[in-house]
Every structure is written in C-alpha cells, then in structure tokens.
C-alpha cells in the first residue's frame, strides 16, 4: 500500500516537474509546479511529517505559487514568453551534467544497497516535539527568519512600487534602459 502510494506520487512528481521545466507557457508550468508540490507534500506525510505536508500545501501551493500566477497574469507574460525559447548551448551542458549527477547518486545507492526505512517513532511525528524544538533549540534561527520575512516584505514593497512621476527619468534617461542591439520597445500589452 505504502509502496504503491509512493510510486504513484513519485511518478506524478517527476512527470509534472518535467512539464514545469519544458512547457513554454508559464501558466502551465506554474500549475504543474502545484502538482509537484502536492505530490511532495504527500511524500512528506508518508515519511511521517504531516505537519510539513500541510505547511507545504498551505505556504507553497496556497501562497507562493499563487503569487507567481498573479505576477504572470499582471505582466501578461503569455505573449512575452512566446519568443523566449531555450538556449541550445546551455541545454547541451545542463543535460549531461544533470544525468551525471543522477547517475552518481544512483551509483552510490546501488553500491550502498537500500536500507529499509526506520520505523516511525511517535516522538518524530508529534507536533509538540517539533514545536518545543523550534522554540527552544532553534529559537534564534526562528527569530532571524521572522526578521528576514519582515525585510522581504519591505523590500518587495519598495521594489515593486511604481516610481513617482518623473523620478525614474531624472535618474536615467529612458533610452538608456534599452541596451544596444535591442529592438525598439513595443507596448507588450495589446
């Protein structure tokens, strides 16, 4: 039963992650990422981390990826991305590299054998244990992460803020933003 669930969701994760990487449309790629995230969340539950599984869906699928979709739609990237394909040169470096990596990891496990998974201890699954560790041994990292999120919120607000009229043009003439060799800027929004 457990093996079957693992196989189904592992296959789903790999297939959907391939779509993420290969699909031309950013919306399809983003939706496939949701499938990948969901599959990995199921695997988290299978590994005895139901809390992380729920968090994965709540934070990743429920918030981060929605943000991606929001930006894709806001910028109307469908047309912009049609021209942006893949670079052949980089693919010929990336593909052998990735295959080499997977092959190496596979070789290691093949040589090392496949140790069975340790039985699940109640201690590992319990939320209380996780919370206690988080708020005692890992309190400092926790607080730093809180600070990081605050900085990120402020940073994102500042970065995405529409500059007051004229401010950007005073810093740099508009033409300077267009690099040499670029075709003239067109309105992306039709």
């Amino acid at each position: 039963m457990e093996t079957l669930i693992f196989l189904i969701f592992a296959a789903l994760a790999v297939a959907s992650s391939l779509v993420v990487v290969a699909h031309r449309s950013p919306v399809y790629a983003t939706m496939s990422l949701v499938v990948t995230l969901f599959s990995v969340a199921v695997l988290f539950v299978l590994l005895g981390a139901p809390f992380l599984g729920a968090l994965q869906i709540l934070i990743y699928a429920g918030a981060i990826v929605v943000l991606f979709l929001f930006v894709i739609m806001l910028l109307n990237l469908q047309k912009a991305s049609a021209a942006a394909g893949r670079r052949g040169g980089q693919l010929w470096v990336a593909l052998p590299g990735a295959l080499l990596f997977v092959g190496m990891v596979g070789l290691v496990f093949w040589r090392a054998g496949a140790p069975a998974l340790q039985p699940l201890t109640a201690d590992l699954v319990s939320l209380k244990g996780l919370a206690t560790a988080l708020f005692s041994d890992y309190l400092l990292p926790f607080e730093i992460v809180g600070l990081l999120l605050l900085v990120a919120v402020i940073g994102a607000t500042v970065a995405a803020r529409r500059a007051p009229d004229g401010e950007a043009s005073r810093l740099l003439p508009r033409e300077d933003f267009v690099g040499a060799g670029d075709e003239p800027r067109k309105e992306a929004r039709s």
């Binding site: 919306v27 939706m31 949701v34 139901p50 809390f51 599984g53 729920a54 968090l55 869906i57 709540l58 699928a61 429920g62 918030a63 929605v66 979709l69 929001f70 739609m73 699954v125 319990s126 939320l127």
Partner: peptide
C-alpha cells in the same frame, strides 16, 4: 481525525483560488 486538523482545512481551502484564477485566465 488527523493531528494537523485545522491546518489541513486551511491548506485545502487555500487551493480554491486556483480554480478562480485559471477560469479567469
């Protein structure tokens, strides 16, 4: 009757947004 209770509810209901966004897109 799962330990993560409310969290699971929030996680699943947060997926509802996709149908709206995809329908709109």
């Amino acid at each position: 009757p799962v330990d993560t209770g409310v969290l699971l509810f929030l996680a699943l209901s947060s997926l509802a947004v996709y149908s709206l966004v995809l329908a709109g897109y």
